[in-house]
Nucleic acid binder design. Structure first.
Lengths: 202, 202
DNA sequence: GACGTTAGTGACACCCAGTGCCAGCGGCAA
DNA sequence: TTGCCGCTGGCACTGGGTGTCACTAACGTC
């Protein structure tokens, strides 16, 4: 029994972190499909039933508290000044929420390598990203005086997320660039209608 | 060898169609999660085991022969003239592969309503669309003299697919517009860097 | 200090998606 | 007829996810 009132970091928060770390390590080492939820639970020191009280699905185990990231993105977008171009404000918000400390970068790489590389996790990410799209579309709709369901807000939301995802892929594949630079490069191409396509041959 | 003569409707093709229709109807009526594979199999007049010999997963049941659509997109892109702008060629290809006969539009609406609306199908679509992205990225890479893994080809592939998906959503929600028009509208915004964002307030 | 309450946990049974295996059955060629 | 072959269905099994119940530790109240 863990009992005792050490609980400084809060027992639930600690368990949550153990689950995430165990899932990240096992998935990285053996692949998502080859790991059972029993094994993750064992590695995290809990029962399988308790595992599913902390995370809704096996795929959710690698996402940490993604909801708070979305909330932070929402606040950042709401706080942007009206004289800033819409795309620039979205880019800045994406850069800000992905501004991890150097010590946290290895874990971010591990997570994103899995999310973008494992088909099952890639599929599941769509559900999580839908929240991001909703937040961005609402921001664009406010700024442009449109409804969030109109073509333009939706399109900006999905294509900026495509830009962010692509920047992540390049960042992971390269290994030498900074994520912020990759994000800016992708958003610049998007905002200017892909000028790189018009310079025939590099 | 194709062997076997003619087989006018071909038993396997017919079974495939029955599975797709049964899945489409049941999912539309009761929701993806509420329908079991047993029920789809029953409705299609086959056993559950046979059902899984025709489709890899429950989610795949609504996709028909999506692979041939991707092949067709690939051929259309390869056949574009070099003097046409890259984005225009991609838009034209998307319009062409989605140019259904009027009689087939209800089924297309049904399929896309499910794919874009049901979370599980939306997640699964990511896996199918990865093939589309690969084909488009290769085309862009050829046209721009880059590798398919570079930022620009990937970005163009993902954001044009975002445009196509958004156009589909608007087409489904509206009900009066033509899909081709919605696709062109989305691609125009994308190609010009979202001019709609710069006209402050409508 | 005994008591009821409450939150968290583990064990168990269950449903359902997906798979491996094998037996049966029809068509087809020698 | 015989043997091969492709398709099918039945069966058992694995693994993700859930509902239920009993147990226990922490906490407030008298």
């Amino acid at each position: 029994m863990v009992c005792v009132t050490d609980l400084l970091p809060d027992a639930r928060t600690e368990t949550r972190a153990r689950i995430e770390q165990a899932a990240l390590d096992l998935f990285t080492r053996r692949g998502f499909e080859q790991v059972t939820t029993d094994e993750i639970a064992d590695a995290a020191g809990i029962s399988r039933r308790t595992f599913f009280r902390y995370v809704a699905t096996k795929a959710d185990a690698v996402w940490g508290d993604f909801g708070s990231h979305v909330d932070r993105l929402d606040r950042l977008l709401s706080a942007t000044r009206p004289d800033q171009p819409v795309l620039a404000s979205i880019c800045a918000a994406y850069v800000e929420v992905n501004d991890y400390a150097v010590a946290d970068l290895p874990m971010l790489r591990q997570r994103m390598t899995l999310v973008l590389g494992e088909p099952a996790l890639q599929a599941h990410s769509q559900v999580r990203y839908a929240d991001v799209d909703r937040v961005v579309a609402e921001h664009v709709a406010r700024r442009a005086g449109l409804t969030p369901g109109a073509l333009l807000p939706r399109l900006v939301a999905t294509s900026t997320r495509a830009a962010a995802t692509t920047a992540f892929e390049v960042w992971l594949a390269d290994g030498t660039t900074s994520l912020a630079d990759d994000l800016h490069a992708a958003f610049d191409q998007l905002a200017l209608g892909f000028p790189g396509l018009r310079t025939r041959a590099a």
